[in-house]
């Protein structure tokens, strides 16, 4: 296989779809296509990206409407068959609402939108999304969200820890997230959700390339 085929889902209100497309296509030189939310099936892709944004305006709970979009059944089927899915920011929120990942997202503790570079620590490098990082590596990646305060009950948190499902933790908690969680993976290891935006830290000109290795890891894994 020469190129990996990425599919970036576009919900109305997605706004990081172009950015993800750009990084995968122009920076990483992979094969990328948009998948319109009204489609019902995912075909001919190796990895689905649920991008950031405000799907359907997110006037209700974030991601709560997007999970009912026709494409989500296709995404769930794809994931259940072991396909790789990465949800970034709003994409992570949608994965939670769709039940592909455990937990829920609350408003940031300071009740403000927060956009800034943060440092996150890698906890699990044995995933399709993180295999190219060094163990315990600290990454500089921006966040940009209103609702990044990850919540999970104690039992759920224990399960996450036991299964090594916590992939990223904030070095300094910006939003009140339980256990400093910035990103988690499902038990099967093929669905990742993360609040920080790796596509925003994929080029030197933008101040960090730490995020690029998430996409590179995916390519490496599938190859």
């Amino acid at each position: 296989m020469e190129f990996l085929r990425f599919g970036v889902v576009v919900f109305p209100g997605s706004n990081c779809d172009h950015d993800c497309f750009y990084v995968l296509n122009n920076v990483l030189k992979q094969d990328v296509k948009y998948i319109w939310h009204k489609e019902i099936e995912v075909r001919d892709v190796d990895c689905i990206v649920l991008p950031g944004g405000f799907s359907y305006g997110d006037y209700l709970r974030t991601g709560a409407i997007a999970r009912f979009s026709p494409i989500m059944q296709g995404v769930i089927d794809f994931a259940n068959k072991g396909g790789l899915v990465i949800g970034i920011c709003n994409g992570f929120q949608i994965l939670l609402e769709a039940g592909l990942l455990p937990g829920a997202m609350l408003r940031n503790k300071n009740v403000h939108f927060i956009c800034k570079h943060v440092h996150i620590k890698l906890l699990n490098k044995n995933t399709p999304f993180t295999n190219l990082y060094k163990k315990d590596e600290v990454l500089k990646i921006p966040i940009a969200h209103n609702e990044g305060n990850y919540y999970i009950d104690e039992k759920g948190l224990k399960t996450l820890k036991e299964n090594n499902q916590i992939v990223f933790q904030y070095c300094a908690n910006p939003n009140g997230a339980a256990d400093n969680i910035a990103g988690i993976i499902n038990k099967e290891g093929n669905v990742l959700g993360m609040m920080p935006h790796p596509e925003r830290s994929s080029e030197k000109e933008l101040g960090s390339q730490d995020g690029l290795f998430i996409f590179k890891s995916i390519v490496e894994w599938v190859k």
Binding site: I114, C115, H197, R200
Partner: peptide, 10 residues
């Protein structure tokens, strides 16, 4: 400005 998304569009 931390409340504004100032990085989107790369």
């Amino acid at each position: 400005y931390e409340q504004y998304d100032h990085m989107i569009q790369l």
